[in-house]
């Protein structure tokens, strides 16, 4: 017995390493367990408790460029708005003709990105809105470009967002003018893949990818991506459709949480 203790004591650093590796592997394999979420909850609370330092020189310089881009975009949207107002009138007339009930408009809560995580690869972002601002779990989060993700952990003043680039993210989408349905899953960088698209669907490069509405979380027609490449592999039932996401999580400074859209779950 004494020899055993001596042996364990001699190899204690190696045993500690093995224990740490086993726990790490268990966490990796049970990524969506309650314990994992409890740890993430702790992480987001720590982030939320530490205020983000404000205004650095690089931030001021980037504001100047950003202001220029926003001015250009404002002009584009002004022109687009005039066109959309016309279309909205036409749509209203058609809806009333078809006796559609008018859906309640979405209530968007503007939020600032207060953190992009502590890892060396961007996986999540944290917003400065939480339950005190009407945010709950499983609400869609958007940017001006398109869908960014959904709220996954919410504290009184912060919420952590599962990004559309997260490897476990899945989204029901429709592609192109025909609205061919498929499931979007992220790949590396700004790319994602839409599965379940038949070679006869007519999907081609440049087609828009939008949410299909077949979801408890995401309403339909939220912009998501654009088709980048379509590959037909002989003998396979589905085409390989690679899309480029509209958003770049590294550059997002502000986002909109659709608080008016209550998830069904």
């Amino acid at each position: 017995m004494r020899n055993l203790f001596e042996l364990l004591s001699y190899f204690r650093d190696l045993l500690l390493l093995i224990l740490a590796v086993i726990i790490s592997l268990m966490l990796l394999l049970t990524g969506e367990s309650r314990q994992s979420f409890a740890l993430q909850d702790l992480g987001v609370r720590i982030i939320g408790a530490v205020p983000r330092p404000r205004i650095g020189i690089s931030e001021i310089l980037s504001y100047k460029d950003e202001n220029q881009i926003l001015r250009q975009r404002l002009m584009q949207y002004t022109l687009l708005n005039a066109e959309l107002a016309d279309l909205a009138r036409e749509n209203e007339q058609l809806r009333s003709m078809l006796q559609f009930t008018k859906g309640a408009p979405y209530d968007l809560r503007v939020a600032e990105v207060i953190n992009r995580g502590a890892s060396s690869i961007l996986s999540t972002i944290t917003l400065n809105v939480g339950t005190n601002h009407g945010v709950v779990e499983n609400l869609p989060v958007l940017t001006l470009e398109g869908l960014l993700g959904k709220t996954i952990t919410v504290t009184p003043n912060t919420s952590i967002i599962q990004l559309i680039t997260d490897r476990n993210f899945r989204l029901s989408v429709k592609v192109g003018g025909e609205g061919t349905r498929g499931i979007l899953k992220p790949l590396y960088g700004p790319y994602a893949e839409v599965t379940g698209i038949a070679p006869t669907s007519g999907v081609q490069r440049g087609d828009k990818v939008m949410t299909s509405g077949f979801s408890d979380i995401y309403p339909k027609n939220l912009p998501v991506a654009e088709v980048h490449e379509v590959t037909h592999i002989p003998g396979e039932n589905f085409s390989r459709v690679r899309v480029r996401l509209y958003i770049n999580p590294s550059e997002v400074e502000h986002a909109f949480v659709m608080v008016g859209h209550e998830p069904d779950s």
Binding site: S24, L25, L39, S119
Partner: peptide, 20 residues
């Protein structure tokens, strides 16, 4: 682990493993 909890949503344990 703390680093993972503060940012790696779907890969909790990657930093803990590598850093151990």
């Amino acid at each position: 682990l703390l680093q993972d909890a503060m940012g790696s949503l779907s890969v909790l344990g990657a930093n803990a493993l590598a850093k151990s």
